[in-house]
């Protein structure tokens, strides 16, 4: 086991994959400035600062991915993805299909989002569901330091365009990472805490919110299972359904706004495939339909808190 921060885990994943595969390269505004060690190890050709122009960064990555390179791009903050939507959604997501399978687009787009830094809605906007709705893309949003490394490595090796969201609230936390090659396959959720009476389903920093709530509930004799989705597309429906079939109850928790969010997809999946197992309605706890504010107490209030999760579970258990 090695103890490190999320930033170090990301650096380690990049370094290992760049060493393993000479076609991996890193592009973005300041990547060569901030990740000096990678420049030293792999050269300025493969770790490139770019102009401040997200559309052309993404487009360059898409064109390069189709013709033999395996780019990782750092677009900094998730709202900046709006400038790169065409390249990611219309080109990376569609040109494989529209060309009858002639091209593939192995590329990873990293972006930070979420409460924790007080930077307001033009730097903090959880847009992961937009990309889950776009065909041809995969979406990953890790919750643990080990997953940041393992999922990033798997995303880089994937043959498809992957959106890799980094929750700002987790970006400077630290944790343990297994020694040796550590890969976490895309599309696999994980049970963070086993339980019997209710399933708490989440991803990114609200996984810890659910774990805290489960701890509190345990003190009151209620056994809650916590599932970390890890990959939002493709969604691990089998793990979600297996847990809900066991517990009969589900609360979905995420920071992104409720309407059209990932929680809606998870709830609908449960309703379609495990209705017979449900003992109570499926609940969602999510951020409000509002831009994210900068003010610290407002920003914290945006994120579902453990108390609210506990209260929701108690409501379900009547």
């Amino acid at each position: 086991m090695a103890h490190m921060t999320v930033q170090e885990a990301i650096d380690q994943a990049l370094a290992e994959e760049m060493a393993r595969d000479p076609s991996v390269l890193l592009l973005g505004e300041g990547v060569a400035t901030k990740r000096r060690a990678l420049v030293d190890a792999f050269g300025a050709e493969r770790v490139r600062n770019t102009p401040l122009a997200e559309g052309i960064i993404a487009g360059t990555a898409v064109g390069a991915a189709a013709t033999g390179l395996r780019p990782v791009i750092d677009l900094l903050f998730a709202p900046f993805l709006c400038y790169a939507m065409d390249e990611l959604v219309n080109s990376a997501g569609k040109l494989r299909y529209l060309s009858g399978g002639q091209f593939s687009f192995p590329l990873v787009t990293m972006a930070m989002t979420g409460a924790g830094w007080g930077v307001g809605a033009q730097h903090n906007h959880n847009v992961e569901a937009w990309f889950a709705h776009a065909p041809g893309l995969k979406v990953v949003m890790p919750a643990s330091v080990a997953d940041f490394k393992g999922l990033l490595k798997a995303a880089i090796r994937d043959q498809n365009p992957v959106l890799f969201f980094i929750d700002i609230g987790l970006a400077y936390t630290s944790g343990d990472i297994p020694d040796g090659e550590h890969l976490v396959p895309l599309g696999q959720a994980v049970v963070r805490r086993p339980g019997e009476a209710v399933t708490l389903i989440s991803y990114a920093k609200t996984v810890a919110v659910c774990e805290q709530a489960a701890q509190t509930l345990a003190g009151q004799g209620i056994s809650a299972e916590v599932i970390d989705l890890r990959t939002l597309k493709p969604l691990d429906e089998a793990s979600i359904l297996a847990s809900v079939r066991k517990t009969g109850r589900a609360v979905i928790v995420h920071e992104a706004s409720r309407s059209g969010g990932i929680g809606a997809e998870v709830a609908a999946t449960i309703g379609e495939h495990a209705y017979d197992a449900l003992k109570a309605p499926v609940l969602r706890l999510a951020g409000p339909d509002a831009p994210a504010p900068a003010s610290y107490p407002l920003e914290q209030a945006f994120v579902p808190q453990p108390d609210a999760v506990v209260a929701a579970v108690k409501r379900l258990l009547g």
Binding site: L25, I56, T60, G63, A64, L69, E87
Partner: peptide, 14 residues
């Protein structure tokens, strides 16, 4: 136009 730079980069780097 956005994709061409990526193809150009592949040609150059490879």
């Amino acid at each position: 136009l956005a994709l061409a730079t990526g193809v150009g980069l592949s040609q150059k780097m490879l």
